[in-house]
C-alpha cells in the first residue's frame, strides 16, 4: 500500500485552495537499471478530487509528472469544516484515497 497523501485545503478568499503531495515513484519506463534493463513504467494515471460528492477536479497523467507529484488547484463552494477527498489510480491498478478538512 502506498504512503498517504499530504493534503492541505485552506480558504483563499471565497475559494478553497487545495494542495496535494502524493507519494509515488512515477517511473517513466525510459530509464535503465545497472544491468541495462529498462525499468518498467509505473506512474499515476488518474487523479480525482471530490467535495460533497461533486468532482472538483479530475486529471489524467503521463509518466512525465515528477516523482512524488505535487498538485494545487482552487474551487469555489467549499466551507471550513467540510471535507475534500482525493483519489489516485496508477497503471498497476493500485489506488489510494485520502481526505482533508477545509480550514
Amino acid at each position: 500500500m502506498a504512503d498517504p497523501m499530504k493534503i492541505r485545503a485552506t480558504m483563499a478568499g471565497d475559494k478553497v485552495e487545495v494542495k496535494v503531495l502524493m507519494a509515488h515513484e512515477m517511473e517513466t519506463g525510459q530509464r535503465k537499471d545497472g544491468k541495462g534493463k529498462v525499468i518498467p513504467a509505473w506512474f499515476i494515471q488518474n487523479v480525482t478530487a471530490t467535495h460533497n460528492g461533486k468532482t472538483v477536479l479530475s486529471a489524467e497523467w503521463g509518466p512525465a509528472v515528477s516523482k512524488n507529484p505535487f498538485l494545487s488547484f482552487r474551487f469555489s463552494g467549499g466551507k471550513p469544516g467540510e471535507k475534500v477527498t482525493i483519489t489516485w489510480v496508477d497503471n498497476h491498478g493500485d489506488k489510494r484515497t485520502d481526505e482533508a478538512t477545509i480550514s
Partner: peptide
Amino acid sequence: LAASFDIPDGTEPWINTRVKM
C-alpha cells in the same frame, strides 16, 4: 503530453504542478 486536467464548473481554471523535462 505530460498531464491533462478537467476543470468542472466552480473550479478555477488554474493549475499548479511539477513535471519532468
